[in-house]
């Protein structure tokens, strides 16, 4: 019996297979590459796609940051950090600037990412066409033929019913004028950070067994009609109650005791840094 786990938990063969899929994903931006999702000591649907990417890429020189909904201290983020640290011994940080690999769920950090950094996103549903077509065999064909009318229909339906596009997270975008991609459940506020970025974005869906990527300086356009421009969330007139920032993505918090509504930065480490300046 094995008394010790391999470096970074997964065996070297598995890591190589995942890295091969990553290379393919980088070569075809926005295309979902199938991969053999491995068993992990946590359930599928809990970020296993992201963890497998992190584990297969991480080395002794790396510094890791894990965020969940913008927070470094949430249960999920803390436990993923503990797990990776246990099987690799790499240092962890909460500072975006210091990290080489950042694993995240639901947010892209406020601090602009730089060349050499990798952002690993955990994806629950990688297929942007799934809401309009339940069969994988059909969605694959639709991608192959660029048959994207149904997804535009989804946007139009929202316009005709509510007068505006109501999709707030997982807002579909077109990558390099070819593939329509689901940017994982980040708010559409973060969509613009995907376009012409310095860093590498990797998306891993463990349960759905798919990996896809946006390499640096890739063209990423959020879908919008010619006469209805894409709009991200507006926090006009609102600011973070802790650091006073007005240009960040704000969480709305409701205090049931006082009935008060206030706003604060969703990116906790950014908020802290602004305050300490």
């Amino acid at each position: 019996m094995m008394d010790k786990y391999n470096y970074a938990f997964l065996d070297e063969g598995s890591k190589r297979e995942i890295r091969r899929s990553v290379l393919k994903a980088v070569a075809i931006p926005g295309y979902q590459v199938p991969f053999g999702s491995r068993e992990l000591p946590i359930g599928r649907g809990w970020g296993t796609g992201g963890i497998q990417l992190t584990l297969s890429l991480i080395g002794p020189e790396d510094t890791l940051k894990v965020i969940d909904q913008g927070s470094d201290e949430s249960v999920n983020a803390v436990n993923i950090k503990k797990f990776v640290k246990m099987c690799t011994g790499v240092p962890c940080t909460t500072r975006t600037q210091e990290a080489t690999i950042i694993q995240t769920r639901h947010r892209i950090p406020e601090v602009p990412m730089t060349n050499g950094q990798i952002l690993v996103l955990q994806v629950p549903l990688p297929e942007p066409l799934r809401i309009v077509e339940p069969q994988e065999a059909v969605t694959k064909k639709m991608h192959a033929e660029s048959d994207y009318a149904p997804i535009w229909l989804q946007l139009y339906e929202s316009l005709i019913k509510y007068g505006k596009v109501t999709i707030s997270a997982e807002y579909p975008c077109l990558v390099e004028d070819r593939y329509i991609m689901n940017p994982s459940p980040i708010p559409k506020f973060d969509n613009s950070k995907l376009h012409d970025a310095e860093c590498l974005y990797l998306f891993g869906a463990g349960r759905e067994k798919k990996i896809y990527a946006i390499p640096p300086h890739t063209k990423v356009v959020s879908l919008a009609f010619d006469d209805v421009p894409f709009e991200k969330e507006s926090f006009r007139g609102k600011k973070c109650r802790l650091c006073g920032s007005t240009d960040t993505y704000l969480d709305e918090i409701f205090d049931s005791a006082t009935g008060e509504r206030y706003y604060q930065c969703s990116d906790t480490s950014y908020c802290k840094e602004v305050r300490s300046k």
């Binding site: 009318a149 535009w152 229909l153 139009y156 339906e157 005709i160 009609f225 010619d226 006469d227």
Partner: peptide
């Protein structure tokens, strides 16, 4: 309206 728009989208228009 969307049912009709679907055809127009498929024909290439992106003007809502």
């Amino acid at each position: 309206a969307s049912n009709i728009a679907e055809k127009i989208i498929a024909a290439g228009s992106r003007n809502a």
